[in-house]
Amino acid sequence: MSFNSISEFLTMGGHGLYVWLSYGLGLVVILANLIVPLQAGKRLRVQLTRRLLREKQGS
């Protein structure tokens, strides 16, 4: 372990802003890459199912 205390870990020797900003952005990009396809998939399934059911009723 290269830190002695929590506050030392948070400040990162004066570079806290840069390190935490980077890791925050990393988290955002990773989450976005998971949430966007998940949401799109859900929407697509609902949309396709609805259309399918409508077609079935129509016929």
Binding site: M1, S2, F3, F9, M12, G13, G14, H15, G16, Y18, V19, S22, Y23, G26, V29
Partner: peptide, 24 residues
């Protein structure tokens, strides 16, 4: 990367950004 890896002797803790920058 954040807790256990040692800090760089020149760049200090900002070096830890490498663990995100290089893989991406």
């Amino acid at each position: 990367a954040l807790v256990f890896a040692p800090a760089d002797y020149q760049q200090g803790n900002s070096f830890r950004i490498i663990y995100l920058h290089v893989p991406s």
